[in-house]
Every structure is written in C-alpha cells, then in structure tokens.
C-alpha cells in the first residue's frame, strides 16, 4: 500500500537508440552510427533554427518591455564587455601576420603588398573566424551552462506556466545579441589588427608610410568585402546562439548533463562556423 504507484517504463525515443546502442562490433556499424548521429543532430539543429526564426517573425515587437532589456543585455555581453580581450588578441594577430609577412615579403621585395595581405588574411578570414571562436568561448559556453541549468532546474516549465514562450524569452534575445555583438566585435577586431599591424611594420623599419598602408588596404577592399563581412559575422553569431541554445534548452537535461552538453555544443558550433566560412570562401572566389 505504501509503495509508489507503478508506472510504465519510459519508451525509447525516436533517435535514442543511436545514442544508447552498445559499442559497435564492426567498422560499418561504427560508421553508420556516426552518420546517423550527424543526421539527427543536423535535423534537430535545423528544426530548432526554424522554430526560432518562426518565433522571431511571429512575435516581432511583442512583449518589448520584457524582451528589449534582455536583448540589450545580450548585446552588451557579446559585444562591449568583450572588447578589452578582443583588442589584446587583435594586437597579437597584427603582430603575428605583419611579423611573418614582413620577414618574407622584404626578401622578395614585395612589401608593397602588405595592405593586400592584411585585407585577405585579417578582414576576410582571420578576423571574423577568430572573433566567432572567441565569442563562442566566452559567451556560447555560458549560454549552454545558463540554459542547461535553467532547464534542469525546471525554469522552462515555470516560463510555460506563466504563458511565456521559452524560445521567445530565452533564445531570441541571445540570437539577436550574438549576431549584433559578433558583427560589432569583428569590426573593432579588424580595425585593431590593422592598426597594430602597421605599428609592428613601423617598428621593423618597413619603408611604408601610413597613407600608403591605408591606400593599399582601401585598394584591396571592395563592396563585396563589406557586404559579406556583415553577413558572415552576423551569421556566425546567430549560429553560435542557435547551437548553444539548442544544447542548453531543446532537450531535457539533468544537472550532470550540462558539462557534456557544453562540450558537444562547442564542437558543433566550431564545425558549423567552419562550414559557413568555407561557403563564404566559395562566394568570394566565385565573385572575384
């Protein structure tokens, strides 16, 4: 009489068999499992991204008194508060690129290409990608921990009990904040790297006046660089937000699962950003 009422065993979920199957005996099984896991992950992330976009569209401007401050807070967290770290890394990147390029270009008399190299290396590739990885490390991981803990503590159910859409309240501000923050940080990062690059070139006695350096950079830039930079960096931020929110929020979590979810989210966000970057390289090469 005092025993709890018996309940039926929880049924296997649609995709759970892939994650809980015993160790593979053969390499085709192992390969097959990896392919299935990859497929289910992409499907889950895609569905979550579409749901988020749907909520952003249908609830645009709704509950501004609650969502507005959260969005501003996320922009500050993914932007202004990270600026000191980014300026330091940008200065190091400028030294790294210029130091290496000057050492080699001066041997072949190609110092006049310094600005072009900076545009190709820093503006198009390293700037956005390093910014994205640093934002992932500083903000993306925090997203998974915060949302995963909230999920494990039942705060998502509490939001639903109050008639508040968890995606609208928890995900949308992060997507907007990270997209805007990553774009803004990349711009500052690139400017700082270009500036520090010239300082290091000056310290190495490269015969290049500031106006020549700026002219080289301006000559190497096209409208496509500005358009794709904005698009790429905002997409990096949105991808980081989607992947990290998905792992923190979309599935039931226990407290002990949060660290695993964080590690998984970082790995998948890095891969997603890498794939997006490759796509943009194709766009550059096609348009060039």
């Amino acid at each position: 009489m005092n025993e709890p009422a018996p309940t039926a065993a929880a049924p296997e979920t649609e995709t759970g068999f892939v994650f809980r199957a015993p160790l593979s005996a053969t390499w085709p099984q192992a390969l097959g499992r990896r392919v299935l896991r990859w497929f289910f992950t992409v499907r889950g992330l895609g569905a979550f991204a579409l749901i988020t976009l749907g909520v952003m569209w249908t609830k645009a401007g709704r509950s501004a008194a609650a969502i507005g401050p959260l969005t501003r807070q996320e922009v500050a967290r993914a932007g202004a508060r990270l600026l000191p770290l980014f300026l330091f890394v940008a200065a190091a990147l400028g030294l790294l690129v210029i130091g290496q390029v000057v050492a080699w270009s001066s041997r072949v008399g190609a110092v006049s290409y310094l600005g072009v190299v900076m545009v190709v290396a820093v503006v198009r590739e390293l700037g956005p990608l390093i910014t994205a990885f640093l934002v992932l490390a500083r903000v993306g991981t925090a997203n998974v921990v915060e949302l995963g803990t909230a999920r494990a503590a039942g705060e998502v159910e509490a939001l639903e009990a109050l008639g508040i859409d968890p995606v609208h309240y928890l995900v949308v501000p992060r997507v907007i904040g990270l997209a805007l923050g990553t774009f803004a940080l990349t711009v500052f990062f690139i400017l700082a790297a270009l500036g520090s690059g010239y300082v290091w070139a000056f310290l190495q006695d490269v015969p290049l006046r500031p106006e020549q350096y700026v002219r080289q950079i301006a000559g190497a830039l096209s409208w496509l660089d500005f358009a794709l930079l904005a698009l790429k960096t905002a997409a990096f931020g949105a991808i980081i937000a989607i992947v990290t929110c998905y792992h923190g929020l979309a599935r039931p979590l226990r407290f002990e699962d949060v660290s695993t979810a964080t590690v998984r989210a970082v790995g998948q966000a890095v891969v997603a950003c890498g794939c997006l970057d490759a796509l943009f390289i194709v766009v550059y090469l096609t348009a060039a």
Binding site: S63, A65, T149, A150, A153, G154, E155, L162, I164
Partner: peptide, 18 residues
Amino acid sequence: RLFNTLTVAENVALPLRY
C-alpha cells in the same frame, strides 16, 4: 522554480512585463 538570475521583485514582475 523561480528564475535564479532575477531578483524576487523581478521574478514577480516578469509575467506582468511580458
């Protein structure tokens, strides 16, 4: 199941603001 990142007053205000 209060929201731990919000104060008590902010928790109570949340449904009203939203």
